[in-house]
Design a protein around this nucleic acid. Sequence first.
DNA 1: ATAAACCTTGGAGTTTAATCTAAGGTCAAG
DNA 2: CTTGACCTTAGATTAAACTCCAAGGTTTAT
Lengths: 159, 159
Amino acid sequence: MYRIGELAKLCEVKADTLRFYEKHGLLAPSSRSDSGYRLYNESDAERLRFILRAKAVGFTLAEITELLSIELDKSNWACADVKGLVDSKLAQVNEKISELNHFQVSLQRLSDACCGGPESAEHCSILEALESNTDNIKCENHAHHHDKSQYTKNCQSKG
Amino acid sequence: MYRIGELAKLCEVKADTLRFYEKHGLLAPSSRSDSGYRLYNESDAERLRFILRAKAVGFTLAEITELLSIELDKSNWACADVKGLVDSKLAQVNEKISELNHFQVSLQRLSDACCGGPESAEHCSILEALESNTDNIKCENHAHHHDKSQYTKNCQSKG
DNA sequence: ATAAACCTTGGAGTTTAATCTAAGGTCAAG
DNA sequence: CTTGACCTTAGATTAAACTCCAAGGTTTAT
């Protein structure tokens, strides 16, 4: 039997987190001591590890609640149900990755267009790109009046 | 001059969003009508578009607040400052992408190991992977006792 | 004059996963 | 018998970016 702090340390979470999981129906200690302390047994610990592994692959606690209810009643669920949860999560993750990839490309383009030097930002390509509605980012090296700018290497926009 | 609903429609946001931006110091109407209605001019609209473009490349409103303060006082900032904001955002985005890529790989591996059929989840590879601490995902086709399983194609784990 | 569509304000609710606080009870060691 | 580490509870707070609500005032058209 583990007290809350012991299980928390064992699984590298905080005691607060375990109380939070209990309040939200994910994990309750199987018993209490006479003085009201939570007591977790090995099977509680296994359940916690299940939760933590599911978190590690990206499931939210709400989704883990679903997984746990299947886990406790496996014979009344099909593989299709379980795989459905995984695939739906996979779709969400892919969508988010795709959004972030758009950000990545846009930010990289902005970064590449800017010399990043000590010049005044008055002609900064980044600010200009955010001011105008074009996707088209202009290189700022000319505007800075540095004929032999040391930053030319940074100009990669197709103006 | 635009009333709040007009500017909202023009820029495809909600009036609530404009009030929210005002409350958070991102965009205030340049005047009010006699009856207290917000009145936005063309320069307010430009500022809103700046905000929206910055959002579209992944900046948070807090970061946009910084960008706006630079934008309004360009000559006292250097390109390095602006590029710094972009690069720091880029690093955050890359980190998040990397985390999601881990999720993606793990979820795909789980999905691939599961037949996804109408079989009982009692031997579901996904649940078994979450129960045990191995990275090693076992294919469930044998466990289902389908000698000529129609799901064999889904088994791709290296058990 | 009255209905519809618009606007005002302050404040509450949403989502996620904790994290923290206050005020107090329990347990083991010295 | 007191100190420190641990535990209890309920409830408040955090971040982010809105979104919605109630209760009322304004504008416009008929």
